[in-house]
């Protein structure tokens, strides 16, 4: 019994880390099937442009995130620091209560491990609207206004918020406010409030890579803003398929355990 306390200590710090390895769900695209043969070549090709000179972000993309844990994307030097109430909320969350498990939207910037596209309107000429079309999660879209408008003074809170976008050089910058507080940032259950303000920066660094850098500002949940990066990979051989989450969703009654798989640090 003299080994009881040290054993306990070793286990409660060691096991979650081991478990994280064991779990083996890295964020997409590593998760999914092998990359296509031309992928290596595409990494050396430059990103294409549209006739008006703006970068062309069209294509079927897979990945970016967060998915499993938003902390996996923290850029060097960045820290995610939860306010005490937000930490308590996260600690109390059960995995089965993730809205994603009930076919509700994953909001911004969380992504499902299914492909998605960026489409613009009008097709030829300066975009007034950009649409993110998602195959997975709930087969829905995000609408980004590109026509120079401002955010409304008092937006109705929604799952995806009110998004306005503009180009800064080769980077698409999307500013979003007007979120409800219902979506979770990841499977872990990192929360946010209606004060959430996200600034996403998309840069197609080569033909097959879309870098996504997001600054999360939410004084209701986090002590300070933090920045994450998760990249997407081009899947030119794919098309989006239909995925109706409500068709055969059986999981919720069977999901056990807390959402947060790793004790707070």
């Amino acid at each position: 019994m003299k080994y009881l306390v040290p054993t306990t200590i070793v286990f409660f710090f060691g096991c979650p880390l081991l478990a994280q390895q064991q779990q083996g769900i890295p964020d997409v695209p590593a998760v999914v099937a092998e990359l296509y043969p031309e992928h290596e070549e595409f990494l050396r090709m430059p990103a294409p442009s549209l006739p008006d000179g703006t970068p062309d972000l069209s294509g079927v993309w897979l990945g970016s995130g967060p998915m499993r844990d938003i902390r996996l994307g923290l850029t060097p030097g960045e820290e995610l620091v939860l306010l005490p109430e937000a930490q308590a909320l996260m600690d109390s969350r059960l995995a089965r209560d993730d809205p994603e498990a009930s076919c509700l939207p994953t909001g911004v910037p969380r992504i499902a491990p299914y492909p998605w596209r960026i489409a613009q309107a009008p097709l030829n000429g300066k975009a007034t609207h950009l649409y993110f079309l998602f195959e997975g999660n709930i087969h829905s879209y995000r609408q980004i206004f590109m026509d120079g408008r401002e955010h409304p003074e008092d937006p109705d809170p929604t799952w995806y918020g009110h998004s306005i976008g503009h180009w800064e050089g080769d980077t698409l910058v999307i500013d979003t406010i007007g979120f409800n507080d219902l979506s979770w940032f990841d499977f872990q259950g990192h929360p946010h409030t209606e004060q959430l303000h996200t600034i996403e920066r998309y840069t197609r660094t080569n033909f097959a890579t879309l870098e996504k850098v997001v600054t999360i500002i939410d004084p209701g949940s986090y002590e300070k803003p933090f920045t994450i990066q998760f990249n997407a990979t081009l899947r030119p051989e794919w098309e989006l398929m239909e995925f109706v989450c409500n068709e055969n969703n059986q999981d919720v009654p069977h999901i056990v355990g807390p959402a947060s798989m790793i004790p707070s640090q």
Binding site: Y3, T7, C15, P16, A19, Q20, D251, I255, M261
Partner: peptide
């Protein structure tokens, strides 16, 4: 005994973590 305790903690730490997403472990 210590060995049983050790094993119990390994199982406790892993069982919840890995399968929460789909609920397969429950079924």
């Amino acid at each position: 005994n210590v060995r049983q305790y050790f094993l119990a903690m390994v199982l406790a730490a892993f069982s919840v973590v890995v399968f929460a997403h789909h609920g397969y472990a429950d079924r």
